[in-house]
Design a protein around this nucleic acid. Structure first.
Lengths: 228, 228
DNA sequence: GGTGGACTGATTGCATCCAGTATGGTGCTT
DNA sequence: AAGCACCATACTGGATGCAATCAGTCCACC
């Protein structure tokens, strides 16, 4: 999986564990709402509970894990409203990030994008599809120099990953067709260097996905047990 | 100081320390680039280094602290480019947050806003000014139910606080006049229920501050020692 | 039979202790 | 005198162990 880590600066155990748990959550190995026991992670990744706890703190700050004092940790689950909120945030931020990336989108990058878009269209495996989709969009986000915005967007993608997975399993041919069309249109706009259009396409693409997600309340938890 | 905590869910030592250090950074007690020694914090807040380390991990994730493995922790410092990036992000997000808050902006809230705007105009103390400014804007952000977006905005405010402080000390009468006018116009638009205008004012207000900040490169660190 | 309370097992939170690593200073070499 | 290597010190990273807290269960009582 690519582009999963928002902010890792050291190679210590706690960072390693944070990365591993993050991947486990994003890959669907740990489902939203699932309990996380410190000692299990410690044993699994070979260490004591100390680095595990630090990793969980970090993941909590990233919105992937929910900690309750003296009680435990759970994989964060979002209500539909919260998920929608994240998507609305992405609608605003990703066009901005794309704009910052404009100068780095060389012919070579665009060629890669084209390849990814086609490969995605040929894919019939959900996990592969999700991974390609992620690679595609982040390939367009190459803003360099500073990383605040890309980190932010990465986190937003991460927190909504489980619902993207659930939704992808439900989507019909017609919507999938439109989804792929968006990608091809984006590649085309970028090839023409029409950044204004590209930004609009990204915003619409995200919004389209959000609206579709909102049509499937069944993939979200029924009640929202006061998880602030 | 109000509205400082983005995501605190427990009352344990590590959460208490995180809160205290966060406040110390935001209040200017700890300057960007300043070294943070775990043991000093442990002694100061009464505890061992374990909860201190967890607190630092959390603050790192919030962008207030920078950790380097086996070396130490520093108060995060931003380059001008990074600071500008945060402001551009705010330009996109705060109007969205304001829109979500619309239904909660009762007459009473607007009266409070008006009071804050006037009090700010009368203030000649930088710290008081900064605090009032924060209170003013967050009083307009009352979106309830979900908190992702408000947490995000809180974090963005937090990471740029030191530079807002430095800039406030430099600003001249003319710019200050415009700054206050923005606030009064915002109150007026909210009073009229003209949310579209209100959103525009917020965006312009943030952009104006960003542009002014960019005119003062001297408040940012000269070099940017590869702090990713 | 249902409800309330006490107990027990499991798990978290934290402190102490030890090992590993980076930094700064000193002395030696060229 | 300048540069380099080495060493000592201070700090961080992690493991173990103990106290505190929560959840789930069983039993008594209504």
């Amino acid at each position: 999986m690519a582009e999963v880590t928002p902010t890792t600066r050291d190679g210590s155990a706690s960072a390693r564990i944070a990365e591993a748990v993050r991947r486990a959550i994003l890959s669907g190995e740990h489902q939203p709402g699932e309990r996380i026991v410190q000692e299990e992670l410690a044993e699994r990744y070979g260490g004591s509970r100390i680095p595990v706890r630090e990793a969980l703190r970090q993941l909590e700050s990233e919105g992937l894990v929910r900690l309750v004092a003296n009680t435990g940790a759970w994989v964060q689950s979002l209500t539909m409203a919260q998920c929608s909120e994240v998507y609305q945030t992405r609608e605003r931020l990703e066009p901005l990030l794309l704009r910052h990336s404009a100068e780095h989108l060389t012919d070579e990058v665009i060629h890669t994008l084209d390849g990814l878009a086609q490969k995605m269209e040929a894919s019939d495996d959900i996990e592969e599809f999700l991974e390609l989709d992620r690679q595609f969009h982040f390939a367009t986000y190459r803003a360099e120099g500073t990383y605040v915005l890309r980190d932010l967007v990465t986190r937003l993608w991460n927190t909504t990953q489980p619902y993207r997975r659930a939704y992808t399993g439900l989507v019909d041919q017609e919507h999938m067709r439109i989804f792929h069309d968006d990608h091809h249109m984006l590649v085309s706009a970028l090839r023409d260097g029409d950044m204004k259009l590209a930004e609009q396409i990204v915003a619409i693409h995200i919004r389209r996905t959000r609206v579709n997600l909102e049509r499937h309340p069944e993939i979200f938890p029924d009640t929202d047990p006061d998880q602030e």
